[in-house]
C-alpha cells in the first residue's frame, strides 16, 4: 500500500515538472523549475542526470518514480 501511495505521489510530482503534459521531462523542463524551487541550475542538472537511466535526453514517469523510490528506500 505504501508503494501505491508513493507511486501516486511520484505521479503528482512528475506533473509538477512536466508543465506541458508531454509525458516526459526534458532537461529544459528541469531547468525551468529553478524559478520555483530553491535549487541552483547545477543542482537541477544533477537531479536530472541522477534520475536519467539511459541517457536519451528525457525522463519518463518510470525513471522519475524509480528515483524517488530509491531515495526513500522503496522499490517502486
Amino acid at each position: 500500500d505504501v508503494q501505491v501511495e508513493m507511486l501516486e505521489k511520484a505521479r503528482e510530482l512528475f506533473q509538477l515538472c512536466d508543465k506541458d503534459e508531454k509525458g516526459f521531462i526534458t532537461k529544459l523542463d528541469m531547468q525551468r523549475l529553478q524559478s520555483e524551487l530553491p535549487l541552483t541550475l547545477e543542482q537541477l542538472e544533477t537531479v536530472f542526470d541522477s534520475l536519467e537511466q539511459n541517457n536519451n535526453g528525457y525522463l519518463t514517469p518510470v525513471e522519475f518514480s524509480m528515483g524517488l523510490g530509491k531515495l526513500i528506500g522503496i522499490d517502486l
Binding site: K9, L13, L16, C17, Q43, T46, S50, L51, L71
Partner: peptide, 29 residues
C-alpha cells in the same frame, strides 16, 4: 574539492529536490 562534492551530494540534491516538490505540492497554493 569539486569531484568529491559531485559524488557525495547527488543524493542530498535529489532529496532536496523531491522535498521541495513535495512542499510545493502540499504547501501554499
Amino acid at each position: 574539492d569539486p569531484n568529491m562534492k559531485a559524488g557525495a551530494t547527488s543524493e542530498g540534491v535529489l532529496a532536496n529536490f523531491f522535498n521541495s516538490l513535495l512542499s510545493k505540492k502540499t504547501g501554499s497554493p
